[in-house]
Design a protein around this nucleic acid. Structure first.
Lengths: 186, 186
DNA sequence: CTTCACATGTAATGGGTTACATGATTTA
DNA sequence: TAAATCATGTAACCCATTACATGTGAAG
């Protein structure tokens, strides 16, 4: 049971989903390909944390819809209360910033402009997800379980939004620094 | 040549360092153990990007001081100008936030308090590094190469500071949300 | 007629973590 | 006397990415 396994369990508390749908759903939150996910689903099914129902389809390939079990929910509940390990961030940009004096000025600026664009598009995506989540929350009534899962999703999405806003702010600040430092160095 | 290799090259543009020192220096910027670093140094030495001098010591074990070569500097220069891949963030807290409704309220709050404390200590560490970098900048004169490496280090450290400030702000906001949502749900 | 979406799997390779291995000196 | 710092390396294992593999239907 690695972190990704718990992430899959977490998604399954909101909805029963196929391996394919889990792969799509987890993408904005955690980088993982389908080749990582399918074997984990097999192993969690063997452990009794999830169960599946085979859905036969004629037009599309058959699929397996996974549902979290009581044992799976209990496992997840225990994990949630354990302290979260420090986050691991691997960002090439860090080393490129460190070595930015080696780049031609236009290329240095381009590096930051591209990153700012990437972060703005991520920001838009997360903001859309927040809106979809709020709509879902209103559409369904206010039963306790449902507001609980939409609340968790809201917290998470707000975190992603704040992180992206901070990254955009950094890029804009750094572009300004580049421009004000360009001349005095020579 | 993976990202970590370029990171090691980047550090060697400021100072010649031993494998041990590189391991310590890179820690605040990139998670990597010495068992990853020593083999990369061997392979970069074989490629001609770095060279080393063996220093014999009597009180402590012998060491190898690595220096970047012209070829290494050229390799790094080319890499810096290529677009930076999107960052990869793996943070358990994301999934724990999603599943926070499963945790008892005190444990949910403790999760966020612990993370806020971690981020504040990181923030302090980076702020100290910025001060050390500024002192270094003043101590040495203002020759072009030196201001260049201290500038890159400054940019990078400011990014880390901004990221940590954003994380602390999130934790504080989320703790407030937890408290205001605790009662109305029942 | 090619690409995209749906849908599930395996295999090879590369990257990262933990543990094994050694050994002197200093500090608690 | 136990732990920490300095110093370098290897081995085993786990995790992640890319590629291989198959097949239908819809849309451009």
């Amino acid at each position: 049971m690695n972190t990704l396994s718990y992430g899959l369990l977490a998604l399954l508390t909101a909805n029963s989903l196929s391996g394919y749908e889990l792969t799509q759903s987890i993408k904005p939150l955690w980088r993982a390909g389908h080749s990582q996910i399918y074997p984990l689903l097999v192993s969690m099914e063997q452990k009794g944390y999830i169960s599946y129902e085979r859905i036969e389809q004629t037009d599309k390939p058959d699929k397996k819809i996974y549902t979290i079990t009581e044992a799976g929910l209990e496992q997840l509940r225990e994990w949630v209360e354990t302290p979260a390990d420090p986050p691991v961030l691997r960002d090439e940009l860090h080393f490129k910033l460190y070595s930015l004096w080696l780049a031609r000025p236009e290329e240095a600026k381009a590096l930051l402009v591209r990153r700012a664009e990437f972060c703005r598009s991520e920001l838009d995506r997360y903001n859309l997800m927040i809106k979809a989540n709020e709509a879902l929350c209103q559409e369904r009534g206010e039963t306790r379980e449902l507001t609980a899962t939409t609340f968790g999703r809201y917290l998470l999405l707000r975190k992603r939004v704040m992180d992206m806003e901070s990254s955009v702010a950094f890029c804009e600040w750094a572009i300004g620094e580049l421009e004000s430092n360009a001349v005095p160095l020579e």
